[in-house]
């Protein structure tokens, strides 16, 4: 991460070990994951031993220690979505892309994440993808969505109108 980006994140937080999680959150949203070099920088700036930074980064689900795909498909597996069939949606996604949750596909295009409740239970099962949300999902719809995203990614653009297509 560039010096300036890091400096912005660390502003007002240097030598404050209790800010570790906040700092890692910002690194995660900036970089998409927490790299070993980011950990070293953070360890030095905050005064937290490197092993402890690693320990914290590996404990919390918010942090990814590996780079993530271009399209991050988040499937809500909260209780309400589960009873409405979220498991089938997740199975379809993982089966279709050939990866387990939190793994990235070989081509770097997709990572499937699971989240335990987005709080939009009236619209479940819910899948979000890089800011857009898709409602009342089932295996069939998610299959179409993944197909659309793959073609769009390889074609380089995404049709705006399809953003909220159910």
């Amino acid at each position: 991460m560039s010096e300036s980006k890091l400096a912005a994140i660390l502003k007002g937080r240097k030598s404050q070990p209790h800010q570790l999680i906040e700092v890692l959150q910002d690194v995660q949203s900036r970089e998409g994951y927490i790299s070993p070099s980011s950990m070293r920088d953070v360890s030095e700036a905050l005064g937290v031993p490197l092993t402890e930074v690693y320990s914290v980064a590996s404990f919390y689900k918010a942090f990814s220690l590996n780079p993530r795909g271009k399209n991050i498909l988040t499937v809500c597996t909260g209780t309400a979505c589960h009873v409405r069939g979220a498991k089938m949606v997740l199975n379809q996604a993982t089966g279709q892309l050939g990866v387990a949750p939190s793994e990235m596909t070989q081509d770097g295009l997709f990572t499937i994440e699971q989240v335990n409740c987005l709080g939009a239970c009236a619209l479940g099962p819910v899948v979000t993808e890089n800011g857009s949300s898709y409602h009342h999902m089932n295996a069939r719809k998610v299959r179409k969505l993944i197909h659309k995203l793959s073609t769009a990614s390889t074609e380089g653009n995404l049709n705006e109108q399809d953003q909220h297509h159910q």
């Binding site: 999680i21 906040e22 890692l24 959150q25 914290v56 404990f59 919390y60 689900k61 918010a62 942090f63």
Partner: peptide, 8 residues
Amino acid sequence: VARGGGAF
């Protein structure tokens, strides 16, 4: 304000 890290 402090944010959680994704841990129930």
